[in-house]
């Protein structure tokens, strides 16, 4: 005879397995397309559009690579993407930490008003200002340069908010006073005390800025009009509707642009998820 307890135990086990299977199937649905990018990147044109569609790697990488370089200055585009993303990350961390520190620890007139004003800009949908933004960049003569893609967002509301929230709780005011008594200048305090202590928040801000910049499309599409100034997403999109461009070449470009992000993500996924969530949920609650 099987006791009631055993049956109950068994049913819990079955339902757990069932739930596990649901999660597994859904995750295959999410991961499979990434495998497929690499399959297509390795297929030459004749072996790509077939019935059934290809499910395994081909040997067309060399051909796709030649075709990619014939149509785009691809490595130049990768260089642009990397340069803009790195500059955006470094400058955003620097200026948002400074501003966040000031809002967290300094007392000055109009502080609350200024901070609320900055927060209010979070509610304005960014992409809607694209035409005035473009006109300003034309006026500054910044079209086809990297500048419009990192300078205007160096000190942004999200970053300032994040850094202020973090610094407010993590730096004791006594520590700052002690440093001042020892004769430390404010800028030295920033470099020696604030930056090292703010490391976890800096990681959140840095990761989200880098990913956002690397994937930025709309802004880059409007600003970058010359092949040599394109970032990777703009470069790839420029191949659409052009005759005689191998789809394999586009997929190879896509795969190459994915690799840096995938590597970062696979190594730091735990931190990235935790930190991006911390950042956004703090905004929510």
């Amino acid at each position: 005879m099987i006791s009631d307890k055993k049956i109950q135990h068994l049913s819990i086990k079955i339902s757990t397995t069932f739930l596990f299977l649901i999660l597994l199937i859904v995750s295959i649905f999410f991961v499979y397309p990434f495998y497929y990018v690499f399959v297509l990147a390795s297929r030459e044109r004749a072996n790509m559009f077939t019935v059934p569609p290809p499910f395994w790697f081909g040997n067309g990488i060399r051909q796709n690579y030649t075709s990619l370089l014939q149509n785009l200055p691809f490595w130049r585009n990768m260089f642009n993407s990397t340069g803009i993303a790195v500059l955006a990350t470094v400058t955003t961390i620097f200026f948002c930490t400074m501003a966040g520190f000031a809002f967290a620890k300094y007392k000055f007139k109009g502080k609350d008003f200024l901070f609320n004003f900055i927060l209010a800009t979070l509610a304005i949908p960014q992409l809607l200002g694209i035409i005035p933004f473009f006109k300003m960049m034309v006026w500054l003569n910044w079209i086809n340069t990297w500048l419009p893609l990192f300078v205007p967002t160096m000190a942004n509301a999200f970053g300032i908010f994040l850094m202020r929230q973090y610094l407010e709780g993590s730096i004791p005011i006594d520590l700052l006073d002690a440093a001042r008594i020892d004769g430390m200048k404010e800028f030295k305090i920033l470099l020696r005390i604030v930056f090292p202590l703010a490391r976890p928040a800096i990681a959140v801000l840095g990761i989200s800025t880098f990913i956002g910049s690397w994937n930025n499309f709309f802004g880059a599409l409007v600003i970058l009009r010359d092949k040599n100034s394109y970032t990777v997403p703009v470069a790839l999109s420029s191949l659409l509707g052009v005759h005689n461009v191998d789809f394999g070449a586009i997929m190879l470009g896509t795969a190459l642009a994915l690799i840096p992000l995938l590597l970062i993500f696979i190594f730091f996924s735990k931190q990235i998820i935790a930190s991006l969530l911390a950042g956004s949920l703090k905004g929510a609650i």
């Binding site: 596990f20 995750s27 397309p33 999109s237 992000l261 993500f265």
Partner: peptide, 25 residues
């Protein structure tokens, strides 16, 4: 088992460029 893997897998589409995935789809 696999909680960390699931979280990583579920998050993956979000970090990739919209242009790349649009080409693939």
């Amino acid at each position: 088992r696999g909680k960390e893997f699931f979280k990583t897998a579920y998050f993956l589409p979000y970090i990739t460029s919209s242009v790349s995935v649009a080409f693939l789809f």
